[in-house]
Design a protein around this nucleic acid. Structure first.
Lengths: 211, 211
DNA sequence: CTTAATTCGATATTTAATTATCGACTTTAT
DNA sequence: ATAAAGTCGATAATTAAATATCGAATTAAG
């Protein structure tokens, strides 16, 4: 059964999670939609509607919802309990940062290996083995990895993408600042820091013009 | 004069840019909204409306727009020509990756220095000087830096945020997976990889259920 | 020279997302 | 006990975003 949820709501859920975890550390057992909304500076109604979509139990009037239950519900909805395996291609600065990032584990993603062109010998980063990119197709096929993360320089990104798809990867998470051409059904997510920067500097500009 | 543009359009502009650059390398001098739309798998009407908002000259029927002019227009709109200075606090793996990332330069952002708690001696990463976090408030104040990038562990993020704001920073770009409390007028952008992952794994899930 | 194919830009239309309103229900305080 | 404040959930209204439609314009092909 597919729960329909808009991408906008979906993107807010992890943000709620971060606020809920803060509430937990503050020792709050219950919280209302308005509490979350205040922290995020969005409307309480919006939060309430989002939560209604994913919560398993009902809220209590004048009290809200149980924080820990809500966290569980969001995590379950986002699939943090079922681990998806991923590989990363490109072990430069960014690749290393992603491999070392412990957060993925919380998010139900495990980077099981990395590949790099400059590597002949096998070595590890934080216990994650790094192989030569030459053996990538074989290994990825054998392990039936679902997610391929691309952190190579932009002139290599398309080639790596093609190889990953050939090897059976179902989704591409691309950090190279280049557009990837893929068949229609393939899932590609382009991570582009320029997007965030666009939002930030637009806000800065607006604020500057106010004065 | 403030050009009104929705955050959604704003986020698409950098994506157009990436596609346009690809067109340039392919030697295309003109392109239409539908060409861009095809590459991104969104509707041509949407692209056309976005472009109408930021283009300085008109498109030509049955030909489209000049690619290089369009690139210039988007870059100008996004402020890639006027450099904003930023500092980064937290020089771990992620911090290093951001400092080394050459893309920022293209996006009109320059990380002029970094700070880290573990640093006593001054050193540099890619010519960017790294100082002890102790001298941060002073330096940031003196240089009137606008943007503060936070890449410290989550338990230090709020403290660093407060210090940056005290030092006069106008916008915070937070990579720590924790919510930051800030005064209302302050610009905060939370970079949360879980957001992207939520989108990706939701798509994966849907695709899995189709079969 | 004419026709067909594209594209633009402007104006609807439709769809989706956000916000508002309201009655019912709990807790807390008086 | 009673009143007040806060919350939920459902439905309605509003706003914003995406899509559709159409005439005019330009190029390319026949």
């Amino acid at each position: 059964m597919i729960k329909e949820i808009s991408e906008q709501s979906l993107r807010r859920l992890p943000q709620y999670l971060i606020i809920l975890q803060k509430f937990l550390t503050e020792g709050r057992l219950y919280c209302s939609a308005s509490h979350i909304a205040d922290a995020m500076q969005i409307s309480a109604i919006q939060v309430r509607k989002d939560l209604a979509k994913i919560a398993t139990d009902e809220g209590v009037p004048n009290q809200g919802r149980k924080v820990n239950q809500l966290i569980r519900d969001i995590e379950t909805f986002l699939g943090y309990n079922t681990v998806s395996e991923a590989v990363i291609v490109g072990v430069g600065m960014l690749g290393r940062a992603l491999i070392s990032y412990k957060g993925f584990h919380d998010y139900g993603v495990k980077i099981i290996m990395g590949f790099d062109a400059a590597t002949q010998d096998i070595f590890t980063i934080n216990k994650t083995p790094i192989y030569s990119v030459k053996v990538m197709p074989n290994l990825v096929k054998r392990m039936r990895v679902k997610i391929g993360i691309i952190t190579v320089p932009k002139d290599q990104a398309q080639a790596v993408c093609n190889q990953l798809l050939d090897a059976g990867v179902q989704a591409i998470w691309n950090f190279a600042p280049v557009h990837l051409d893929v068949p229609e059904h393939v899932i590609v997510h382009h991570e582009n820091m320029a997007e965030s920067l666009a939002v930030i500097s637009n806000k800065l500009k607006k604020q500057g013009e106010k004065s």
